[in-house]
Design a binder for these strands. Structure first.
Lengths: 228, 228
DNA sequence: ACATCGCCTATTGTTGACAATCTACAGCCC
DNA sequence: GGGCTGTAGATTGTCAACAATAGGCGATGT
């Protein structure tokens, strides 16, 4: 009756979820331009499936917010405005702050496990920074924050953050601003990790806030500092 | 070219959205028991439509989290555990706190408009309390908080909160604990409104936290006080 | 020349039928 | 009698055809 070793329970709901995940990955990687239309039929034939599951996947991404649907016109890739960036990062700050509190309240064990996962991600990130693989860096950046939130164990918080992470990747890639301060990127995440590990609650909150603020400034270009 | 008065733009996406809204309302009103299965076919015939739109609506509610889908088994009404209640209210606190900050930062005008809407809701709530219409009270309770969050104008925050509000109504009604402290219910919301109007940021945050904490205690019955 | 009206096409929205899958129950073997 | 296996029923998952709608484009009238 124990869990059979070496065997995986075959995925609960394959097709639509599979298509949605695949499509989301493509979108956040910028393989679809913002505002570009996504055709159900052609996608269905590309995936050798029917319009049904494709439609289901598209609707799912619409509800996540990375696609927008216009009645009888089709679905289009979300176009991000400055306001959207501010919204996304404001919510991210709220979610991560909440996750931080929950994590610190959950006990040392949970913090330790989370830190271990985060360390591995930072390590990978450093490698990708060395070879300047922006796609991978963006993915790991979001993976870091997603793992951070996941550490709190609040399923609703995790679900919410998944969407935010996808939108953030769209911000980063679509606006083509990329990471202007790549040299401090790993350092900033390491700082978050250190504060979490040390259990400095207030400092961690401040660091999260700063992290988000600087990200918004980088993305919107509204930083007050003047270019030399 | 101005907005035509007295005319409403016919809703962008009717059927599926319509079904979803209708169904969500029925669910949060407890017309479907937790764990109860929802059959696509019978629902389709009840609504005189096909399974397609119904399926779409159900999937939407699954993603919102008030239904759960088991592969090849069907969709079932979410069963809420104690842990879910804690999760929901933890996220609600985070969202409302964020909304409060955003609202106070947005300026006096926006705060005023929001307060006006909240006043009207409190007024309605007092009326329903007088006649002990629990359904209406729960609806207005959530409407208050939803309007509060909506006041901040962050579309993502609003979208997130919609789901939380629905889940909260399920908590309240399904657990049949209702409102044990109905006498102070209006007063508590009035207090939130007053603090918002006065712009007392810190006090407002504390009040929101208390509001959520007491709600969790009422719902989980883990209040330390012993029954006389 | 410009605005308006009507068709036309491309795409989604909807429908009913078909196939795959899961649970439950009954029969059978041990 | 207990446990396993095979079948039956029901329900979802998938599919291809049909209908409806929105926007584009050209004709037409002023």
């Amino acid at each position: 009756m124990a869990a059979p070793e070496g065997l995986f329970a075959l995925e609960g709901r394959p097709t639509a979820q599979l298509i949605a995940d695949q499509l989301r990955e493509q979108i956040v990687q910028g393989m679809f331009r913002p505002g570009e239309q996504i055709n159900e039929s052609v996608l269905a034939s590309q995936l050798s499936t029917s319009r049904g599951p494709v439609r289901e996947a598209l609707q799912r991404l619409c509800q996540e917010g990375i696609l927008v649907s216009r009645r009888n016109r089709g679905v289009f890739v979300l176009e991000l405005a400055m306001e959207d960036i501010r919204e996304i990062y404001a919510v991210r700050e709220a979610v991560e702050s909440t996750a931080a509190d929950a994590l610190l309240d959950a006990g040392q064990e949970q913090v330790k496990d989370t830190c271990q996962a985060l360390k591995a991600i930072i390590s990978d990130m450093a490698k990708q920074v060395a070879v300047s693989d922006w796609q991978a860096i963006a993915r790991l950046d979001m993976q870091f924050h997603t793992s951070f939130v996941a550490g709190a164990g609040n399923t609703r918080l995790i679900r919410i953050y998944k969407t935010l992470a996808a939108e953030s990747r769209m911000c980063i890639l679509n606006l083509a601003v990329a990471y202007p301060r790549i040299d401090v990127l790993v350092q900033e995440h390491q700082n978050l990790l250190d504060l979490l590990e040390a259990g400095h609650r207030e400092e961690l909150h401040k660091a999260i806030t700063r992290h988000m603020e600087t990200a918004v400034e980088d993305l919107t270009g509204t930083a007050e500092e003047v270019i030399p």
